[in-house]
Simulated assay, not measured.
Amino acid sequence: MTNFEELQHSWLSQSIEKNTTDNITPILQDKLEKHQRKLRRSNLFMSAGFVLAGSVIAWVYLTYHQQYRWPFDVSIGSVIFLMVVFAVLSWKSYSFRKDQRDVAGIDYLDNQIGKLKWQKKMLTSYVWVYTVLLWLAMVGYIIEVTKRGSLLFTFTALAITTIYIAGVSIWSRFYKQKQQLNAIDELLKNFEQMRNEIG
């Protein structure tokens, strides 16, 4: 055997580095697609709600801004800004990439893991930050709008708003978000396991 043949044989006998795992199981793919559909539908409804709410808020501002001082302007601007930022962050967690769905390549798995971790962070952290900042903006709005009324009226409006926002947040945390987090954790576990198999 010549040196070239030995080199060729040695080259061909080397194992090829594995950079894909087996095909994603149909069950996992169905779960991911179902999760993606729910997320897309939720984001679409949220975005439509934000557009509608933003339109009403803009109308309120344009109609009444001359009657109130700067806290009114700041609170209205803050609410609009918070809705836009929250919508952008929510859509960031949606995976628009559909390539390599049949074969779990490294890029595909890393993309899915990143999106799922972002969704989890949205539910566990950013929703709460958004809720607190929205409540603060509403407090500024209520105080400015009700300052000509009685103190009891202002406190009543603040109490109703606080109870409503707290109630929706608590219900969402212990019912809706719990289900979403369970689905995300299950998908994340499967994708991370596949990613670890690649190495």
Rank of each mutant, 00 (worst) to 15 (best):
Q179M: 11
G167K: 02
Y141D: 01
V129Q: 00
H65E: 06
K178R: 15
Y64H: 14
Y164W: 09
D22T: 06
D30V: 06
D73E: 08
R97F: 01
F174P: 00
W70R: 13
T21S: 03
S47V: 10
K31V: 03
W91Y: 05
Y68R: 07
V129P: 01
T21K: 07
Q36L: 09
P71F: 04
I27D: 09
L133F: 04
G49C: 08
Q180I: 06
N190G: 09
V127G: 05
I16W: 11
K31N: 12
Q177A: 14
K115E: 02
T2Q: 12
R40A: 13
V129N: 00
Q8M: 05
Y108D: 06
F153T: 12
V132R: 10
K147H: 04
E186K: 10
Q67Y: 14
V51L: 12
N182G: 11
I80C: 15
F96D: 10
V56S: 15
F191R: 00
D22N: 07
K18R: 15
L123Q: 05
R97H: 04
E6M: 10
T124Q: 14
M138W: 09
Q112G: 03
S90F: 01
K117Q: 10
Q36E: 11
Q193M: 10
L52N: 08
G167S: 06
R148N: 13
D107M: 08
Q36G: 01
I27C: 02
E192H: 03
Q193T: 08
V79A: 03
G54T: 01
L7W: 12
F81Q: 03
T124H: 13
L28H: 13
A58Y: 08
I27S: 11
D30P: 01
R148C: 07
D102A: 09
V84E: 08
S13K: 14
T156I: 03
S15T: 14
N19P: 02
H35L: 15
K189T: 12
Y141P: 00
W59V: 12
Y141A: 04
P71D: 02
D102C: 06
Y61M: 06
L136C: 15
L82C: 07
G54V: 04
L32G: 00
P71S: 08
H35K: 07
Y141H: 05
T124G: 05
K34Y: 13
T2R: 09
E197F: 07
I80N: 03
I165F: 15
I170N: 07
Y68W: 06
Q180N: 15
E17V: 14
K34I: 13
M1E: 15
V79K: 01
D107I: 09
H9L: 14
Y64E: 13
T20H: 06
P26E: 13
M83W: 11
D22E: 07
D110F: 09
L133R: 05
L116W: 02
R37I: 07
F72G: 00
I76C: 09
S42A: 15
L82G: 00
I198E: 00
K92I: 05
F191N: 01
Q100P: 03
D22S: 10
I165M: 12
K117Y: 08
S55W: 04
I57K: 05
Y126T: 05
T162F: 14
L12K: 12
K178C: 08
D99G: 13
E17G: 04
